[in-house]
Protein backbone atom coordinates (compact mmCIF):
# COMPACT_ATOMS: atom_id res chain seq x y z
CA UNK A 1 0.00 0.00 0.00
CA UNK A 2 2.77 2.44 0.75
CA UNK A 3 6.20 3.26 -0.55
CA UNK A 4 7.68 1.66 2.55
CA UNK A 5 5.81 -1.62 2.11
CA UNK A 6 6.87 -1.63 -1.50
CA UNK A 7 10.53 -1.46 -0.46
CA UNK A 8 9.94 -4.14 2.15
CA UNK A 9 8.51 -6.63 -0.33
CA UNK A 10 11.25 -5.83 -2.83
CA UNK A 11 13.84 -6.70 -0.22
CA UNK A 12 12.10 -9.93 0.65
CA UNK A 13 11.86 -11.00 -2.98
CA UNK A 14 15.54 -10.31 -3.59
CA UNK A 15 16.62 -13.93 -3.34
CA UNK A 16 13.89 -15.27 -5.62
CA UNK A 17 14.78 -16.35 -9.17
CA UNK A 18 14.19 -13.71 -11.82
CA UNK A 19 11.22 -14.13 -14.13
CA UNK A 20 12.81 -15.70 -17.19
CA UNK A 21 12.98 -14.58 -20.81
CA UNK A 22 11.09 -11.46 -21.69
CA UNK A 23 8.73 -12.43 -24.49
CA UNK A 24 9.24 -11.18 -28.04
CA UNK A 25 6.19 -9.04 -27.66
CA UNK A 26 8.02 -7.23 -24.92
CA UNK A 27 11.17 -6.48 -26.89
CA UNK A 28 9.87 -3.04 -27.78
CA UNK A 29 9.51 -2.31 -24.07
CA UNK A 30 13.16 -1.51 -23.64
CA UNK A 31 13.10 1.43 -26.04
CA UNK A 32 9.68 2.59 -24.92
CA UNK A 33 10.80 2.56 -21.28
CA UNK A 34 13.74 4.76 -22.14
CA UNK A 35 11.43 7.24 -23.84
CA UNK A 36 8.83 7.26 -21.08
CA UNK A 37 11.46 7.60 -18.39
CA UNK A 38 13.54 10.21 -20.23
CA UNK A 39 12.36 13.22 -18.21
CA UNK A 40 12.72 11.28 -15.00
CA UNK A 41 16.25 10.09 -15.83
CA UNK A 42 17.22 13.63 -16.75
CA UNK A 43 15.86 14.85 -13.43
CA UNK A 44 17.38 12.03 -11.43
CA UNK A 45 20.88 12.65 -12.73
CA UNK A 46 20.76 16.35 -13.60
CA UNK A 47 19.10 17.84 -10.55
CA UNK A 48 19.16 15.10 -7.93
CA UNK A 49 22.17 12.78 -8.08
CA UNK A 50 24.73 15.25 -9.41
CA UNK A 51 23.72 17.92 -6.88
CA UNK A 52 23.83 15.21 -4.23
CA UNK A 53 27.46 14.44 -5.07
CA UNK A 54 28.23 18.13 -5.52
CA UNK A 55 26.81 18.80 -2.09
CA UNK A 56 29.14 16.20 -0.59
CA UNK A 57 32.09 17.86 -2.31
CA UNK A 58 30.87 21.29 -1.27
CA UNK A 59 30.73 20.21 2.35
CA UNK A 60 34.53 20.01 2.37
CA UNK A 61 34.96 23.58 1.14
CA UNK A 62 34.64 27.15 2.21
CA UNK A 63 32.44 28.86 -0.39
CA UNK A 64 30.58 32.18 -0.34
CA UNK A 65 29.32 32.27 -3.97
CA UNK A 66 31.51 35.29 -4.75
CA UNK A 67 35.01 33.85 -4.57
CA UNK A 68 35.85 30.35 -5.77
CA UNK A 69 35.54 27.51 -3.22
CA UNK A 70 38.60 26.59 -1.15
CA UNK A 71 39.13 23.04 0.06
CA UNK A 72 39.20 22.82 3.85
CA UNK A 73 38.79 19.08 4.41
CA UNK A 74 36.59 18.16 7.34
CA UNK A 75 36.80 21.59 8.95
CA UNK A 76 33.10 22.25 8.41
CA UNK A 77 32.23 19.09 10.31
CA UNK A 78 34.64 19.77 13.17
CA UNK A 79 33.32 23.33 13.35
CA UNK A 80 29.87 21.87 13.89
CA UNK A 81 31.10 20.17 17.06
CA UNK A 82 31.70 23.54 18.71
CA UNK A 83 28.85 25.49 17.13
CA UNK A 84 26.55 26.20 20.06
CA UNK A 85 23.74 27.58 17.86
CA UNK A 86 23.80 24.32 15.92
CA UNK A 87 23.52 22.34 19.14
CA UNK A 88 20.63 24.52 20.23
CA UNK A 89 18.91 23.99 16.86
CA UNK A 90 19.33 20.23 17.20
CA UNK A 91 17.90 20.31 20.70
CA UNK A 92 14.92 22.39 19.57
CA UNK A 93 14.23 20.19 16.55
CA UNK A 94 14.48 16.93 18.49
CA UNK A 95 12.19 18.28 21.16
CA UNK A 96 9.72 19.29 18.45
CA UNK A 97 9.84 15.89 16.74
CA UNK A 98 9.75 13.83 19.93
CA UNK A 99 6.70 15.65 21.29
CA UNK A 100 4.85 16.81 18.18
CA UNK A 101 4.86 13.58 16.19
CA UNK A 102 3.54 11.17 18.87
CA UNK A 103 0.98 13.70 20.09
CA UNK A 104 -0.29 14.24 16.56
CA UNK A 105 -0.53 10.51 15.89
CA UNK A 106 -2.36 9.82 19.16
CA UNK A 107 -4.94 12.49 18.37
CA UNK A 108 -5.25 11.23 14.79
CA UNK A 109 -5.72 7.64 15.90
CA UNK A 110 -8.16 8.53 18.66
CA UNK A 111 -10.42 10.53 16.39
CA UNK A 112 -10.16 7.96 13.61
CA UNK A 113 -11.39 5.24 15.96
CA UNK A 114 -14.22 7.45 17.22
CA UNK A 115 -15.21 8.33 13.66
CA UNK A 116 -14.97 4.81 12.33
CA UNK A 117 -17.75 2.97 14.12
CA UNK A 118 -20.66 4.17 12.01
CA UNK A 119 -21.12 7.62 13.41
CA UNK A 120 -23.70 9.62 11.51
CA UNK A 121 -22.27 12.76 9.92
CA UNK A 122 -18.89 11.08 9.78
CA UNK A 123 -17.95 12.62 6.42
CA UNK A 124 -18.72 16.08 7.75
CA UNK A 125 -16.48 15.66 10.79
CA UNK A 126 -13.80 14.11 8.62
CA UNK A 127 -13.77 17.16 6.36
CA UNK A 128 -13.59 19.57 9.27
CA UNK A 129 -10.68 17.67 10.81
CA UNK A 130 -8.90 17.32 7.52
CA UNK A 131 -9.01 20.96 6.40
CA UNK A 132 -6.31 22.23 8.82
CA UNK A 133 -3.76 19.75 7.51
CA UNK A 134 -4.08 21.29 4.04
CA UNK A 135 -3.72 24.81 5.34
CA UNK A 136 -1.24 24.14 8.14
CA UNK A 137 1.97 24.59 6.17
CA UNK A 138 0.93 27.93 4.68
CA UNK A 139 2.34 31.30 5.64
CA UNK A 140 -1.20 32.55 6.29
CA UNK A 141 -1.73 30.01 9.09
CA UNK A 142 1.68 30.75 10.59
CA UNK A 143 0.66 34.41 10.67
CA UNK A 144 -2.61 33.45 12.34
CA UNK A 145 -0.68 31.45 14.94
CA UNK A 146 1.50 34.44 15.66
CA UNK A 147 -1.58 36.44 16.47
CA UNK A 148 -3.49 33.72 18.33
CA UNK A 149 -0.62 33.08 20.73
CA UNK A 150 0.57 36.67 20.92
CA UNK A 151 0.32 38.85 24.02
CA UNK A 152 -3.00 40.32 22.84
CA UNK A 153 -4.08 37.23 20.98
CA UNK A 154 -7.13 35.03 20.72
CA UNK A 155 -5.78 32.43 23.14
CA UNK A 156 -5.26 34.97 25.89
CA UNK A 157 -8.70 36.38 25.25
CA UNK A 158 -10.04 32.87 25.77
CA UNK A 159 -8.04 32.45 28.98
CA UNK A 160 -9.41 35.80 30.07
CA UNK A 161 -12.89 34.25 30.22
CA UNK A 162 -11.66 32.21 33.17
CA UNK A 163 -9.86 35.16 34.69
CA UNK A 164 -6.44 33.83 33.75
CA UNK A 165 -3.84 36.39 32.80
CA UNK A 166 -2.00 35.02 29.75
CA UNK A 167 1.39 35.95 28.40
CA UNK A 168 3.04 36.46 25.03
CA UNK A 169 3.33 32.78 24.17
CA UNK A 170 5.25 33.23 20.91
CA UNK A 171 7.54 35.88 22.33
CA UNK A 172 8.61 33.91 25.40
CA UNK A 173 11.52 31.47 24.94
CA UNK A 174 9.94 28.87 27.24
CA UNK A 175 6.69 28.61 25.33
CA UNK A 176 7.36 29.61 21.72
CA UNK A 177 8.30 26.09 20.65
CA UNK A 178 5.15 24.63 22.22
CA UNK A 179 2.96 26.83 20.06
CA UNK A 180 4.65 25.23 17.04
CA UNK A 181 4.15 21.75 18.49
CA UNK A 182 0.49 22.61 18.88
CA UNK A 183 0.37 23.76 15.25
CA UNK A 184 1.83 20.41 14.24
CA UNK A 185 -0.78 18.54 16.28
CA UNK A 186 -3.48 20.73 14.72
CA UNK A 187 -2.65 19.23 11.31
CA UNK A 188 -3.53 15.67 12.40
CA UNK A 189 -6.06 15.33 9.57
CA UNK A 190 -3.93 13.52 7.03
CA UNK A 191 -2.65 10.72 9.31
CA UNK A 192 -6.23 10.44 10.56
CA UNK A 193 -7.44 9.74 7.01
CA UNK A 194 -4.77 7.07 6.60
CA UNK A 195 -5.85 5.50 9.90
CA UNK A 196 -9.48 5.57 8.81
CA UNK A 197 -8.60 3.77 5.60
CA UNK A 198 -6.69 1.17 7.63
CA UNK A 199 -9.52 0.71 10.13
CA UNK A 200 -11.89 -0.06 7.32
CA UNK A 201 -9.68 -3.00 6.32
CA UNK A 202 -10.17 -4.74 9.66
CA UNK A 203 -12.90 -7.39 9.27
CA UNK A 204 -15.96 -6.74 11.41
CA UNK A 205 -16.02 -10.40 12.52
CA UNK A 206 -12.92 -9.89 14.70
CA UNK A 207 -14.88 -7.40 16.77
CA UNK A 208 -17.94 -9.67 16.85
CA UNK A 209 -15.81 -12.53 18.10
CA UNK A 210 -14.15 -10.31 20.67
CA UNK A 211 -17.42 -8.95 22.03
CA UNK A 212 -18.90 -12.47 22.23
CA UNK A 213 -15.95 -13.28 24.44
CA UNK A 214 -16.97 -10.31 26.54
CA UNK A 215 -14.14 -7.97 25.57
CA UNK A 216 -14.77 -4.35 26.52
CA UNK A 217 -14.40 -1.65 23.84
CA UNK A 218 -11.04 -0.67 25.34
CA UNK A 219 -9.90 -4.30 25.31
CA UNK A 220 -11.05 -4.64 21.70
CA UNK A 221 -9.07 -1.55 20.78
CA UNK A 222 -5.94 -2.91 22.45
CA UNK A 223 -6.15 -6.50 21.26
CA UNK A 224 -7.75 -6.18 17.83
CA UNK A 225 -7.46 -2.65 16.48
CA UNK A 226 -3.94 -1.77 17.60
CA UNK A 227 -2.13 -4.91 16.42
CA UNK A 228 -3.90 -4.93 13.05
CA UNK A 229 -3.31 -1.23 12.59
CA UNK A 230 0.30 -1.28 13.73
CA UNK A 231 1.85 -1.38 10.23
CA UNK A 232 -0.04 1.81 9.39
CA UNK A 233 0.90 3.43 12.68
CA UNK A 234 4.47 2.53 11.85
CA UNK A 235 4.27 4.01 8.37
CA UNK A 236 2.79 7.23 9.72
CA UNK A 237 5.47 7.40 12.38
CA UNK A 238 8.33 7.01 9.91
CA UNK A 239 6.92 9.56 7.47
CA UNK A 240 5.94 12.10 10.12
CA UNK A 241 9.37 11.94 11.77
CA UNK A 242 11.02 12.61 8.42
CA UNK A 243 8.63 15.46 7.64
CA UNK A 244 8.72 17.01 11.11
CA UNK A 245 12.49 17.03 11.21
CA UNK A 246 12.46 19.27 8.14
CA UNK A 247 9.84 21.73 9.43
CA UNK A 248 10.67 25.26 8.32
CA UNK A 249 7.90 27.64 7.30
CA UNK A 250 6.07 27.88 10.61
CA UNK A 251 9.20 28.64 12.62
CA UNK A 252 10.41 31.06 9.98
CA UNK A 253 7.19 33.06 9.97
CA UNK A 254 6.43 32.90 13.68
CA UNK A 255 9.96 34.08 14.55
CA UNK A 256 10.20 36.32 11.48
CA UNK A 257 13.22 34.44 10.20
CA UNK A 258 15.29 34.72 13.38
CA UNK A 259 14.47 31.45 15.12
CA UNK A 260 13.90 33.51 18.26
CA UNK A 261 13.11 34.36 20.94
CA UNK A 262 16.65 33.44 22.03
CA UNK A 263 16.86 30.64 19.44
CA UNK A 264 13.97 28.75 21.00
CA UNK A 265 12.34 28.11 17.60
CA UNK A 266 15.58 27.73 15.64
CA UNK A 267 14.69 24.60 13.69
CA UNK A 268 17.60 22.81 12.09
CA UNK A 269 16.51 23.73 8.56
CA UNK A 270 16.01 27.33 9.61
CA UNK A 271 19.58 27.49 10.86
CA UNK A 272 20.72 25.82 7.65
CA UNK A 273 18.91 28.50 5.68
CA UNK A 274 20.48 31.27 7.73
CA UNK A 275 23.98 29.89 7.32
CA UNK A 276 23.65 29.12 3.62
CA UNK A 277 21.50 31.86 2.23
CA UNK A 278 21.85 34.74 4.71
CA UNK A 279 25.51 34.36 5.72
CA UNK A 280 26.42 32.76 2.38
CA UNK A 281 28.37 29.96 4.03
CA UNK A 282 27.49 27.44 1.33
CA UNK A 283 30.07 24.87 2.36
CA UNK A 284 28.89 24.86 5.94
CA UNK A 285 25.25 24.64 4.86
CA UNK A 286 26.07 21.64 2.64
CA UNK A 287 27.80 19.93 5.55
CA UNK A 288 24.76 20.64 7.74
CA UNK A 289 22.50 19.17 5.07
CA UNK A 290 24.48 15.95 5.04
CA UNK A 291 24.25 15.72 8.80
CA UNK A 292 20.49 16.17 8.39
CA UNK A 293 20.36 13.26 5.96
CA UNK A 294 22.37 11.17 8.38
CA UNK A 295 20.07 12.03 11.27
CA UNK A 296 16.96 11.23 9.25
CA UNK A 297 18.54 7.95 8.17
CA UNK A 298 19.44 6.99 11.72
CA UNK A 299 15.99 7.94 13.04
CA UNK A 300 14.37 5.86 10.29
CA UNK A 301 16.69 2.95 11.01
CA UNK A 302 15.84 3.14 14.71
CA UNK A 303 12.17 3.16 13.81
CA UNK A 304 12.63 0.10 11.63
CA UNK A 305 14.61 -1.71 14.30
CA UNK A 306 12.10 -0.88 17.02
CA UNK A 307 9.23 -1.92 14.79
CA UNK A 308 10.20 -5.56 15.33
CA UNK A 309 8.88 -5.30 18.85
CA UNK A 310 5.53 -3.74 18.19
CA UNK A 311 4.54 -3.92 14.53
CA UNK A 312 2.46 -6.91 13.58
CA UNK A 313 2.33 -8.09 9.96
CA UNK A 314 -0.49 -10.47 9.11
CA UNK A 315 1.25 -12.03 6.13
Amino acid sequence: MTALNELRTMRRKRGEPKIAAVSDLRKSDQRAALAFLAPWFLGLFGITLIPLVASLALSTTDYDLLTSPTFIGLDNFTAMLTDTRLHESLRVTFLYVVTGVPLQLVVALGLAVLLNRGLRGMTFYRSVFYLPSLLGSSVAIAILWRQVFGEEGLFNAFLGLFGIQGMGWVSHPDTALWTLVLLHVWTFGSPMIIFLAGLRQIPEMYYEAASLDGASPWRQFRSVTLPLLSPIVFFNLVMQVIIAFQAFTQAFVVSNGTGGPSDSTLFYTLYLYQEGFTNLRMGYAAAMAWVLVLIVLVLTAINFWASKFWVFYED
Binding site: L52, A54, F245, Q246, T269, F277, M282, A286, V296
Partner: peptide, 14 residues
Protein backbone atom coordinates in the same frame (compact mmCIF):
# COMPACT_ATOMS: atom_id res chain seq x y z
CA UNK B 1 12.18 10.41 1.35
CA UNK B 2 15.30 12.40 0.45
CA UNK B 3 15.35 15.77 2.27
CA UNK B 4 15.32 18.60 -0.25
CA UNK B 5 17.89 20.53 1.82
CA UNK B 6 20.73 18.29 0.80
CA UNK B 7 20.37 19.22 -2.87
CA UNK B 8 19.09 22.76 -2.56
CA UNK B 9 22.52 24.35 -2.07
CA UNK B 10 24.14 22.86 -5.22
CA UNK B 11 20.91 23.47 -7.12
CA UNK B 12 21.04 27.09 -6.09
CA UNK B 13 24.62 27.41 -7.31
CA UNK B 14 23.71 25.65 -10.54
Amino acid sequence: MLPIHVIIVPRYIM
